[in-house]
């Protein structure tokens, strides 16, 4: 066997070469050395392998954003939670929140001097909220919202739910404080801040729903 033939056989079969080629490798230092070195390289190469690991989360985030931008993927079907936020995004509902915030601003901008007037302002704020809450659609939304959030294990949903509870409690306390001390500027400021917090929180939730993040 010639060296050129040996190399072709080695290339094709590797170390599982036929006896004639093995014999040649024993007799020819060059071919034997070549085969030994290439076998060593091949064996060492296995040590270069890395354990497959998950690509960082940002790869999927970037990919998804790109696929969305190109219109390759469509929005997933809306879950109850997403349907709720889609409903919240309606102009009429946003308007209701804006009215609540404006009312809170008016409490600060035009503080009333009399107990009755302050009570009226708080009552008015509450009334607006109550009116808002009394809307049939909002009731349905809150029920759906509660159900969805209760069943959701999402970290974001859990945080939103927790924050809404905190803000609602804070609003109730502020309203109580303003009723008890209508001339207390700080109490009114706190109430205003609480309304603002809720508005911001809902805005964040709407943003969450919009981006799906």
């Amino acid at each position: 066997m010639r060296c050129t033939e040996f190399e072709l056989i080695y290339q094709d079969l590797g170390s599982a070469m036929p006896p004639a080629a093995a014999q040649h490798a024993k007799q020819c230092a060059a071919c034997g050395g070549l085969a030994a070195d290439l076998n060593s390289i091949s064996a060492a190469a296995r040590g270069l392998a890395i354990a497959p690991e998950e690509a960082p989360a940002r790869v999927w985030s970037n990919l998804r954003a790109q696929l969305r931008a190109e219109g390759i993927i469509r929005e997933p079907a809306k879950s109850g939670w997403e349907a709720v936020w889609a409903w919240i995004r309606q102009p009429a509902v946003i308007g209701a929140y804006a009215a609540t915030a404006l009312l809170a601003v008016s409490l600060i901008a035009h503080p009333s001097s009399g107990t009755t007037a302050s009570d009226d302002a708080v009552e008015s704020a509450s009334a607006t909220t109550d009116t808002f809450r009394s809307q049939q659609q909002l009731d349905a939304m809150e029920q759906a919202f509660s159900k969805t959030v209760a069943g959701s294990n999402s970290e974001v949903d859990a945080t939103l739910r927790k924050n809404l509870r905190v803000v609602d409690k804070f609003i109730a306390e502020c309203e109580k404080a303003v009723r008890q001390e209508p001339h207390n500027e700080a109490a009114r400021q706190y109430l205003y801040g609480a309304y603002q917090q809720k508005a911001e929180l809902l805005n964040t939730a709407m943003e969450h729903s919009f981006t799906g993040e």
Binding site: E53, E54, A55, W60, L67, I72, E75
Partner: peptide, 19 residues
């Protein structure tokens, strides 16, 4: 165009591709 399916396929194969 189902996003969930894309993610499923990505999760299934990304390790080998990334490696």
């Amino acid at each position: 165009g189902d996003e969930y399916a894309f993610e499923f396929l990505y999760r299934m194969h990304n390790r080998r591709v990334y490696a």
